[in-house]
Amino acid sequence: MLDPATAQRLLEENFAPWVQALQPTITAIGPDEAVLEIPVTSEIARVGGIVCGQALATLADTSMVFACAGRLGAFKPVATTNLETRFLSAARGDRVRCTARVIKAGRALLFAEATLIRLPDAVPVAAASATFYLAE
């Protein structure tokens, strides 16, 4: 089973520099969910201090990859086969938190969903779902 420190190290060793530039922190990981947070910075905010959709979609995808790892009990390569992101409200504030979970895991495909909230007021800003192919 993965712990947050090990998962964080795996993120730093295996994800592209532009994903790491979001400064994601894995705050929780287990068989039921993974929780990641990013700070709201000027690099990802557009007019009005609102976090751009690309950063939110990346956070959702990355969080769901770690939800897959939590479900599998180890970090294994998965490929995103589809990703749907629904933007609900302006993402501004101090941080954005994404809670992701696998809703069904088969032999080759994993189905996941994620909810993103802004902090500190915990307003939902986006929801996402994705399918991942387990590349073993």
Rank of each mutant, 00 (worst) to 15 (best):
F66V: 07
T131K: 07
R107E: 07
R92V: 03
E113N: 05
D61V: 04
R107C: 04
I103C: 07
T81V: 15
L83A: 08
V51R: 12
S129N: 12
A57H: 08
V47I: 11
A57E: 10
V78I: 14
L72Q: 00
D3P: 00
V51M: 14
A105P: 01
T81N: 13
R95N: 08
A60Y: 02
R9V: 02
L10E: 06
L72R: 00
N14C: 13
A122Q: 15
A55M: 08
A130Y: 04
L56Q: 10
I117Y: 00
F132C: 03
L59S: 06
W18R: 14
V35W: 00
D32L: 02
Q23P: 04
Q8F: 02
A100D: 06
T99R: 14
Q8L: 01
T81S: 14
V65W: 07
I38A: 04
V19H: 05
A28Q: 03
I38P: 02
E136G: 13
T80N: 08
V47T: 15
A79E: 05
G48L: 11
G70T: 05
V125I: 10
L59M: 14
L10Y: 06
L36R: 06
G93K: 09
A79D: 01
P31L: 01
A108K: 09
I50C: 11
T25F: 04
L110V: 08
E13D: 15
E84Q: 15
I29C: 00
Y133N: 10
R97W: 06
R107I: 05
R46Y: 12
A67D: 06
T115K: 15
R97K: 14
E113F: 01
F132M: 07
V123S: 07
G70K: 03
T99M: 09
S63V: 09
V96F: 05
I29F: 01
K104C: 10
A74Y: 12
A5N: 12
L2C: 04
T6V: 13
